[in-house]
């Protein structure tokens, strides 16, 4: 990827993503943290576009920003007395050390391995191909995923169901 536009876009997006992610861990207010998380998600979506994964990029925006961030906000708003602070617990230093270690190892591996880089260009159209793959080769995992989603919905509803709730709709 030597295209000037892509390179510039990559560096901007990379700075945005990593900067926002670092701020997510650093800011004190949880709501600010979630807002920065949204920025980080958007940056990752931009990186997907530079990787010519347009379908995944859009899905990233749709699911991560449109759904998961909202769920996180719900989790904060529905627990008003629990505090909105994003502070660290007693695990601060070990966690930091472990995180640096893991990330360092991965970076080292990334640079140390000689990857079998292919010479092909980015994908032309991914959505149709992904659809074909999902319904053909990965049909079974696809079905399992739908079952997983269903059980997650049912589980979530059962979990927050008030005790002694009457049967049927209110």
């Amino acid at each position: 990827m030597e295209d000037t536009g892509t390179v510039v876009a990559f560096w901007i997006l990379a700075a945005l993503t990593v900067g926002a992610a670092l701020s997510v861990a650093a800011v004190r207010n949880l709501i600010h943290s979630v807002v920065l998380l949204i920025v980080s998600f958007a940056g990752v979506a931009g990186l997907y576009i530079t990787l010519s994964a347009d379908f995944i990029a859009v899905v990233q925006i749709l699911i991560y920003i449109g759904a998961i961030a909202i769920l996180l906000i719900f989790a904060i708003v529905l627990t008003p007395r629990a505090g909105r602070l994003n502070q660290e617990g007693f695990m601060l230093l070990p966690a930091l050390a472990l995180a640096v270690l893991v990330a360092g190892t991965m970076i080292f591996v990334a640079f140390d391995t000689s990857w079998a880089i292919s010479e092909r260009d980015g994908f032309e159209e991914t959505a149709t191909a992904i659809g074909d793959l999902l319904l053909d080769k990965y049909a079974l995992p696809f079905e399992i995923a739908s079952v997983l989603l269903l059980s997650a919905i049912i589980g979530a509803i059962l979990l927050v169901r008030p005790e002694g709730a009457e049967e049927g709709p209110e």
Partner: peptide, 17 residues
């Protein structure tokens, strides 16, 4: 880096969110 930040947060943060 994203993975590392995530790992750090999931281990160190006190708040469930």
């Amino acid at each position: 880096i994203l993975f590392g930040i995530g790992l750090y947060m999931s281990l160190a943060k006190r708040n469930f969110v």
